[in-house]
Design a protein around this nucleic acid. Structure first.
Lengths: 327, 327
DNA sequence: GTGAAAGCGCTAACAA
DNA sequence: TTGTTAGCGCTTTCAC
């Protein structure tokens, strides 16, 4: 493949002139024409590897994501790619499958490639493996605080859930978290729910369900309580997944939804798309998450020396489904 | 950031020794230890930009795909990424949204970055814009023949569809293509269907439907024919999308599926996942497509000078759904 | 505006 | 084995 030197020779100018021409600087018209011709004749394509080595910049951003197959992640990937593309960045897609070793190797790769930035949505704390000063923005998952975070506003989501339930004649409020997956996010959702209940004098309870074990016993007790007790229950489940399990168990036990129990979930990535039932849910704004994360990363990549670590909360909203009454 | 020279100085060896050490060649034990220490002390990370500039190789593969949001493409993206990763390649994800300008710019980017290869699934013929000798493997879409192609075996799919229908007491066979999207693939599916029918003395007809205009008239005529005519019809639709439209129109008109009409579609990427009805369909083996494409590309990247252009057909299979009778 | 030349960080040939 | 050095293809001073 031909290089700049070849082009310069062909056009009877120096490499510097070719470089200037290619970078939009002023060259005399005759030179411009000759260079243009030479480029076409030699089929010259500028080598960005060399360019970036010299300028110490890169157009690549590494995106680490647990999966790309589920609806949540594929939508997120779509928007992240789109917003990166708009800014002229190329996305290196790294699917971690929640494998810590893979995540680590992706970070290493990113550093070795001197990429411009890293965008990651990771369960483990891969941030501690970033040796360099490559800007990193973490999505959804709380990190150690040395990197920016973009997350749905989980606390506000908990409050919205409680508020929506309270507008539907509920007698008793229950938050159901997941026993096997305690996290900063869950606690925020829980806290929002509790705070709203407390501030509005609503009676509530806290429970947990292990979504892997399916926790039949706990659910059975709950079903008994609801059945033997004419009251109307309102449940806020930490995830749509849990909400779905509860809904199915309740229905199997003959409870009517939303007549006896109303359930609100929280939009997540675990749900398969072929579920017929529509769960009322707190919906995450995936496009906004992607947009915000890319913009934050962009800022930090533009000026890596004075980076400002931010914690950005993206608003969530209630989406009515089949598991709550119409207002 | 520190470089190899710094490490060499710190370890009292030459850069060549550091380079050798890093590339797994033999160095004396003492040197190895010193270098190791120096690397840790200086937080050295090898610069692959420089490495690849020197060696004229790259670890990146550009993957151009129309979308990443639909089930077909997100699954394809998943497998492509996985198989590339297994071979040590990094995927640069380029979502074209069927925009020709974008596709072109992605090819340019790939050439400027001197990536190792390109994997593309594109409607337009972006292959004519490849100036360099970067290996390219095209998925699903027929190209000009100067690059390798990996595709589902559409012809065989057409035969399988006819065969499956013929085992279900059909009186009259119909192939329905799409009027707005004639393509090499459609013709192959049609040819397979026709050949099977001819070879087995089955009476068939060919029709077309414009899935954008929803072509009510043609469908109406078909419905009248089926209704007024006690015969059992068997339809092979060019895509699941068309199969779905037909199914819904038939049902709305009071026809019973699969009692009056049986329908087989062809697995495609346009279908949204929230469709309740399961269409009997010729299923594409997405993982196998991805695997084969990556393997072919790998071969061509390993030895770019004697590349062999291949046309690789991936077997398809019948998947029974609700629109055909059980055998 | 242009050209000569240094140098980004690395690998590889060659000499020691 | 190890060190010296040229050079991958580009950008960027700096003198003209």
């Amino acid at each position: 493949m031909s290089n700049m030197k070849d082009v310069a020779r062909e056009a009877n100018v120096s490499v510097a002139t070719v470089s200037n021409f290619l970078n939009g600087k002023k060259v005399r018209p005759k030179a411009a024409k000759d260079i243009d011709l030479a480029i076409k004749k030699l089929n010259y394509v500028r080598n960005n590897t060399a360019r970036f080595l010299k300028t110490q910049r890169s157009a690549f951003v590494v995106f680490v994501v647990p999966s790309v197959w589920s609806p949540f992640f594929s939508e997120l990937t779509f928007w992240v790619q789109k917003y990166l593309d708009n800014l002229g960045y190329k996305m290196v897609l790294c699917v971690s499958e929640n494998d810590y070793q893979k995540e680590k190797s992706y970070v290493t790769m990113a550093e070795e490639q001197r990429v411009a930035g890293i965008l990651s949505i990771s369960y483990s704390d891969l941030t501690s493996h970033v040796h360099s000063d490559i800007p990193l923005v973490s999505i959804e998952k709380e990190s150690t605080g040395q990197f920016s975070l973009v997350s749905s506003d989980n606390y506000e989501g908990g409050k919205i859930a409680a508020k929506e339930l309270s507008e539907r004649n509920i007698d008793k409020y229950i938050f159901i978290g997941s026993a096997n997956h305690s996290s900063v996010e869950m606690n925020a959702r829980k806290a929002g729910f509790i705070d709203y209940c407390n501030n509005h004098g609503l009676k509530f309870e806290i429970a947990e369900v292990d979504s892997r074990k399916n926790d039949k016993k706990k659910i059975k007790n709950l079903i008994d309580e609801i059945s033997n007790n004419g009251k109307k229950y309102g449940i806020f489940a930490h995830t749509d997944e849990i909400a779905l399990i509860l809904t199915q168990e309740f229905q199997d036990a003959g409870l009517k939804i939303p007549e006896h129990v109303q359930i609100i979930g929280f939009d997540g990535w675990k749900l398969t798309p072929d579920t017929h039932l529509t769960i009322s849910s707190i919906r995450q704004n995936i496009e906004e998450i992607a947009k915000t994360a890319v913009e934050q990363l962009h800022k930090e990549m533009e000026d890596p020396d004075h980076r400002e670590i931010s914690r950005l909360m993206i608003p969530v909203a209630f989406r009515a489904g089949d598991t709550t009454e119409n207002k």
